[in-house]
Write a protein that binds this DNA or RNA. Structure first.
Ligand code: MN
Ligand code: MN
Ligand code: ZN
Ligand code: ZN
Lengths: 150, 150
DNA sequence: CATGATAATAAGAATTATTCCTAATTGAGA
DNA sequence: TCTCAATTAGGAATAATTCTTATTATCATG
């Protein structure tokens, strides 16, 4: 992502925090920045290490607290398979995921066909859907290769 | 599920174990039975408690070990949101899930439309897809009610 | 049916991810 | 500037899952 886009997103984020009554702290800004800077759907520890380069005294708890808070307010989202640690996604435009069941790699993809799928009536009876998301599980190219060797 | 169906599935399971070289132990059979007996996508502790009624000395470790082993061999599957403990699903026919982000309730649904979705070419470049699964997240009817009260 | 190899088990310890606790600090409105 | 609720760092606590080890059970084979 280009640095001009980052700057723009940080501005939008700051406005969102104001609107939501969240204080704009150095830690919060850097945590958000670390999430949107990567396409890797990082986990909390990975975010922690990135932020630590800029704020050496940051605590892991602060990272968790903010990631969860931002997710609660819909500024980032929590993704990933249930077998692993939490993974965070700064890309809030609707999209889908390919997830490798072996190494945990998660890649984005889009699908116009899936974009406007009708949600079955049956589902509305369960409750209020908020998001619809296609999860393709499998082996990534790298893991497929390494498993062939065995 | 009718008891005749359960019996049939246990027979099929037993054959699958033989084919895979897995020993047919009392614990393994009861763990599998507990998973297929419910539509609730139970977690490991819940399976543990059900099995304990029939095998009081069962250990939680044995439950985990078997659930993971059976999942590895494709006899059951692991589902659920990444924020929670592992949830297991004995229904191996293709289907989709509605998941409540608040209480963790997971309900099955089918969709002929989704059944034969084309997987985008882009995705095949990431690796070998094994399963395609639609995840609808939202608030279940019960949680929606209780959150209105606040 | 008895036996031996080996897979599987129970129990509890260990590990890991995540959350909680508390005292100190800080952002932002008055 | 002053005030105070929100936020933080650091460490302790918790909860889910996995590991270790001694014991037991399954099942192929004789
Ligand atoms: Mn994504
Ligand atoms: Mn299901
Ligand atoms: Zn992989
Ligand atoms: Zn619910």
């Amino acid at each position: 992502m280009k640095s001009v886009d980052i700057t723009h997103r940080l501005n939008v984020f700051q406005e969102a925090c104001e609107r939501l009554g969240l204080k704009i702290t150095h830690q919060r800004m850097e945590i958000y920045r670390a999430v949107i800077m990567t396409e890797n759907h990082p986990d909390a520890v990975s975010v922690y290490h990135r932020v630590k380069k800029r704020i050496p005294m940051i605590s892991l708890d602060t990272v968790y607290r903010n990631l969860k808070l931002l997710a609660k307010h819909g500024l980032i989202s929590i993704v990933g398979l249930s077998q692993e640690s939490l993974r965070f996604d700064g890309n809030m435009t609707p999209h889908h995921h390919f997830a490798c069941v072996k190494c945990g790699m998660i890649r984005d993809f889009n699908s116009p066909a899936i974009g406007h799928l009708p949600i079955p009536e049956e589902v509305k009876g369960f409750g209020s859907p908020v998001s619809v998301h296609l999860e393709v599980k499998g082996l990534c190219a790298t893991c497929k290769k390494s498993s062939r060797r065995n």
